[in-house]
Simulated assay, not measured.
Amino acid sequence: MEKQPFSPQMLFNLKLETLEQRITEYYEESQDGATTIQLLLALRVRYQLGAEEFDLVLKDLVHHLFTRTKVSRSMKRFFYYFVDYFEVLEWEKLTLKLFPVRNFIEKAKSIVKSQITKFLPTETAVP
């Protein structure tokens, strides 16, 4: 298991500006999107614990990671925690990018269901 670049004490005690700068520098140096997403998720936890200033922290970096980098397991695993960062249309496009097979299956199911309902007899009331 590789060592994390930030300790829990750093993630939960440093000021917002310091964390933004250090996480951005870390990503620029390492290009490690998976670890960066995990760090950003820790900041989402900090926000959920009551640190209001951490709402949508590093939004540009989150957008960059999800829209301009190769899809990774970490992206898929933590994708739904970042729903607030995207507009509805962007979210739908990202869902298609990250989960193409799942979306294909859901669409196929809906088409099959609609075709089946066409052939089912409608219930009529018996007097």
Rank of each mutant, 00 (worst) to 15 (best):
E106V: 10
L120Q: 06
V71T: 14
E92H: 03
F6K: 02
I111V: 15
V83P: 03
E2R: 13
Q48G: 10
L120W: 02
K70N: 09
L16S: 10
A125Q: 07
K107C: 13
F54C: 03
K107I: 08
L65F: 01
M10Q: 15
D32R: 07
F54P: 00
L61Y: 07
N13V: 09
Y26R: 01
K93F: 01
E2P: 06
E20F: 01
A108H: 12
R46N: 04
V126Y: 06
E52C: 04
E123P: 02
L19M: 07
D60R: 08
P127G: 12
E123T: 08
L58A: 10
P100C: 02
V112H: 04
T36H: 04
F79I: 08
P100Y: 02
E53L: 03
E52T: 05
L56P: 02
Q31D: 13
K15F: 15
N103T: 13
Y26M: 04
V57M: 11
F99K: 01
D55G: 01
L65T: 06
R73D: 15
T67M: 13
P8Q: 05
N103Y: 09
N103I: 14
W91S: 12
Y85I: 05
E20A: 05
F119M: 06
K15Y: 14
V71Q: 06
L16A: 08
I111W: 15
I23R: 04
Q115I: 10
F99W: 01
L41S: 10
T69Q: 15
Y80D: 00
P100I: 01
L39H: 03
Q9V: 11
I111Q: 15
L89K: 00
R22H: 11
L61D: 09
M1C: 07
E106S: 14
T24W: 14
W91R: 12
L43D: 04
L11N: 02
I37F: 05
V45G: 07
F54M: 02
R102I: 10
T69Y: 10
M1D: 03
A34R: 10
L98F: 02
S72R: 02
I23Y: 04
Y27R: 13
E106C: 11
K70A: 00
L94F: 05
E53Q: 07
R102H: 12
V71Y: 03
R68Q: 12
R68L: 04
E87S: 09
F104Q: 15
T122I: 15
V112R: 12
W91C: 08
V57D: 05
Q38W: 01
L56Q: 14
T124Y: 09
M1H: 11
N13Y: 06
E90G: 00
K107P: 07
I105W: 06
T18I: 13
A125P: 08
R44E: 11
L39D: 04
D60H: 00
E92Y: 00
P100F: 02
